Simulated scan of single mutants.
Amino acid sequence: MNVVIYDGDCGFCQYWIRWLLKHDSNERLLFADQYSAFFQSLPVRTADSVMLIAGRHSYTKSDAVIEILAAIGCRKLAFAGRLVPKVLRDALYEIIAKYRHRLAPKSCEIMPDAYKKRFIG
């Protein structure tokens, strides 16, 4: 099971979750926001970062983004991301994370019913 943990109060994060839902045609990803009971039950926690729980592994920051892209079939993009040194990838991630609330509206449109089954609480 691959579960993407994200900030449910962030319009930027919600935009990218919608993008993932549209591009994950094989439905390899499930989603939970960081305020969910699922996330609160995890022994591993992170703040201000997307997180991917993939089996027994967990990934954060740019590693999570790369693994998420690989999971939905964007292998070339994931490969290119791995070529960039982690310290640079994470620095870019931190800049985007710092300004993410300014990059998109605070609220998002209602999630279509077809996608609701992909969210766990």
Rank of each mutant, 00 (worst) to 15 (best):
D48F: 13
K61V: 04
D48M: 09
L83Y: 04
F31D: 07
V4G: 04
Y115S: 07
C13H: 02
L52I: 08
E27A: 10
V65F: 06
N2R: 01
K117L: 08
L88I: 12
I68W: 01
L103A: 15
R45P: 14
E27T: 04
V50F: 15
D9F: 06
R56K: 13
L52R: 06
S58E: 11
Y99N: 15
L92G: 15
K116S: 09
I96M: 08
R75C: 02
L69R: 01
A32R: 08
R100W: 12
I120G: 02
Y115R: 02
Y6F: 13
S25K: 10
R89M: 04
L88G: 06
K76Y: 00
P112E: 11
D63L: 01
P112G: 06
Y93G: 12
A80K: 01
W16F: 07
P105G: 13
Q14L: 13
K22Y: 11
A104R: 09
V50D: 03
Y59E: 07
M51Q: 04
P85A: 07
N26Q: 14
F39W: 13
F38M: 12
Y35D: 11
G11W: 02
G81I: 06
A97G: 11
D90H: 04
L88H: 02
L21M: 15
H57Q: 11
D9V: 03
K76G: 08
C13Y: 01
D48S: 12
P105W: 09
S49T: 05
R56T: 11
H23E: 09
L92Q: 08
H23Q: 04
K106V: 07
L92C: 15
R28Q: 13
I5E: 03
L69Y: 01
H57F: 07
R75E: 06
Y59T: 12
D48T: 05
A104F: 11
V50E: 01
L88C: 02
L103V: 15
R18Y: 07
A64L: 12
Y115I: 00
P112S: 10
P112D: 09
S107H: 15
I110M: 11
R102T: 14
D33K: 12
I5C: 00
S49I: 00
K22C: 07
S36R: 04
D48R: 11
D90A: 13
A54E: 07
R56N: 13
G81T: 03
E94V: 13
Y35G: 07
Q34W: 07
D63V: 02
T46E: 12
F79M: 02
G11R: 01
E27W: 06
R56D: 09
A97D: 03
K22F: 11
Q34Y: 14
L20G: 00
D24E: 10
A70N: 05
A54C: 08
A114I: 08
H57E: 14
K22D: 13
G121A: 10
G73M: 06
M51P: 08
L69N: 04
L52G: 04
E27K: 12
G11Y: 02
I66M: 03
W19N: 05
